[in-house]
């Protein structure tokens, strides 16, 4: 009961803050429209030449539209910027105030990020959701088992991304350049997560290797569940792999944060 009250209060405070920062929020959404650029680009490419995905299914036409609109939409639901926030709080010492509360700081950080999801989701749904329904409805999954797995996968994608943000943010205990490291990671993430290039278009060996790396589980998997026509078994198998990564990354985040905490200098007044 206490946990529910706490989560509710954290979420409400985060939601009110999100409303106060709504202009910044729209700017952030504008900064994540790369999939829409990729949509235009890949449409042009696939009009010239039919591409065949690793699953043997052609990737072109409506599928391109569905894939990149879904990518844009799902990125709004599972994105996180915790690394920048943690880095700032460690550097200016305001983390100290979080540490004085009898709640692990991961929880407020998570709810602060999640509180932005409804607003971001609503904006993205109004645009990308409508476009998906109008131009690419046929590409969207209707399989009940897959549809059931989808919200779980989106949540796990958030956990994976959030945990990686916690890990990179915690590097600020050791280095002043932790956000630069996060930027470098994101550059790789954009390539291998399915954000810019669908994983199915990678050479088979590389696509298989991505199974053992976190990128696809941060974004590609929920997008694929929505538009790739997977059956229930395949979908839940991917979600299970995603869950393993989520647990592993969250454990890594705890380890990095608590190890770093011993070095915390709580600088400033």
């Amino acid at each position: 009961m206490r946990t529910i009250r706490l989560l509710r209060a954290l979420f409400v405070a985060g939601w009110k803050e999100a409303l106060a920062y709504r202009t910044e929020l729209f700017v952030w959404i504008l900064a994540t429209t790369m999939p829409l650029v990729m949509l235009v680009l890949w449409r042009a490419v696939t009009e010239e030449k039919t591409l065949i995905g690793a699953d043997g299914v052609p990737f072109g036409g409506q599928k391109v539209v569905a894939y990149f609109l879904a990518t844009f939409l799902i990125r709004q639901l599972c994105g996180s910027w915790a690394a920048w926030q943690i880095n700032q709080e460690i550097k200016d010492g305001t983390l100290a105030l979080r540490l004085l509360r009898p709640v692990h700081p991961f929880l407020p950080w998570a709810t602060e990020q999640l509180a932005y999801v409804p607003l971001r989701g609503a904006v993205a749904l109004a645009g990308a959701g409508t476009a998906l329904a109008v131009y690419a409805r046929a590409e969207l999954t209707t399989h009940v088992a897959v549809l059931t797995a989808l919200p779980v996968s989106i949540f796990l994608a958030f956990i994976c991304t959030f945990s990686l943000n916690l890990i990179f943010g915690s590097l600020a205990f050791w280095t002043n350049q932790s956000t630069k490291i996060m930027d470098a990671y994101n550059a790789i993430f954009f390539v291998f997560s399915g954000y810019l290039i669908p994983v199915t278009l990678f050479p088979r060996r590389l696509a298989e290797a991505l199974d053992y790396l976190p990128f696809r589980y941060q974004l590609g998997v929920p997008v694929e569940l929505l538009v790739s026509g997977y059956d229930g078994k395949t979908a839940w198998l991917l979600v299970a792999k995603q869950a393993v990564f989520a647990v592993f990354l969250l454990a890594g985040a705890f380890a990095a944060f608590h190890r770093g905490l011993r070095r915390f200098e709580a600088v400033g007044g």
């Binding site: 206490r2 009250r5 706490l6 509710r8 209060a9 954290l10 409400v12 405070a13 009110k16 509360r101 009898p102 709640v103």
Partner: peptide, 12 residues
Amino acid sequence: EETFVLQKALFD
């Protein structure tokens, strides 16, 4: 007062 309400939940 919003922070106070949050504080109430944080400290149960």
